[in-house]
Design a protein around this nucleic acid. Structure first.
Lengths: 163, 163
DNA sequence: AAAGATTGACTACTCAATCTTT
DNA sequence: AAAGATTGAGTAGTCAATCTTT
């Protein structure tokens, strides 16, 4: 918790950015080679599948995948266009939608997971021991002190995972 | 180096992606609030400033910032448009350019660094002890076994740092 | 006014194709 | 043919403004 020299922090930062982007690129690349859509699609499908009946408030889904609202809306357009989910007006709150996962959505999510799991194992698991992996997960979690529910506007470029 | 269960790797992956993107977003957001351009600009300017006379082969600069070629070209268009660098045809190799850092480029890089350094200290350094920071840097570096010079086409969305 | 969602216009990224030089 | 660089067309992300409901 003590403040450290900026040099140390910069080294950790540089490695975080380098490793983070490189690993993400490799995993996404593996998926793409197999003809799968971006991982952002997986994230949304997975949030829906975790929810009861595969249904979730649009605003709730948005906050879970850490995407900005305008970004999320356009992502949903594509997912709906592909027949993976439907937007159904919410009966309780007229402002909101409820997202419904379709059978096609479930099928695709399952298929993506096979490739996704393998890619993670290859690009993360294969390079670290069990102990190291635990340490890494622990250290990284310390970088996220507050988990702002909707406090700030997430701005991304197709990232924002969360397997 | 031993293979581990995919569950452990998935947890590390999830944290890596979450922390990595969250920290990057926060740092970039701090910079933007102060009116600075994207960090990708900083990366290029910094590579030029490190080079002798502020001059570097375009292809060499590209490989160092880990951007795809077509992505890098358009980034250079913007930097040149902003007067931060110039593209000068290479006398030795007619196919290539030499990038020249301008005085405006040096000035902006220096100004950006002040904000950048502070943001890294706040979003990385403040959350970890010196020992933890070292551990983190070490673990992350293990995720980058081969450092492909130009072996694969980096595909990014404005990321790809390296302070 | 605030929350949820969406749209238009703009910017940035991506892929494939192209051009020049080696 | 290969390396370095660039462009056109299409896709995706971004910002500000808008609309509806609460």
């Amino acid at each position: 918790m003590t403040a450290i020299s900026s040099d140390d922090a910069q080294l950790a930062w540089a490695n975080l950015v380098r490793s983070g982007t490189a690993v993400m690129q490799r995993v996404e690349n593996d998926m793409k080679k197999q003809g799968f859509p971006p991982i952002a699609w997986y994230d949304v499908l997975w949030e829906l599948e975790k929810a009861p009946d595969g249904r979730l408030q649009q605003s709730e889904a948005q906050s879970r995948v850490l995407l900005a609202q305008y970004n999320f809306v356009r992502l949903l357009d594509r997912l709906q266009e592909a027949g993976l989910l439907r937007r159904v007006p919410c009966k309780v709150d007229g402002r909101s939608n409820v997202l419904h996962l379709t059978d096609e959505g479930r099928t695709l999510r399952r298929a993506m997971w096979t490739a996704y799991d393998a890619a993670i194992a290859e690009h993360v698991g294969a390079h670290l021991s069990r102990q190291e992996t635990g340490q890494l997960a622990d250290l990284l979690s310390k970088l996220l002190p507050e988990r702002p529910k909707l406090a700030f506007k997430a701005r991304q470029s197709g990232r924002g995972r969360g397997a």
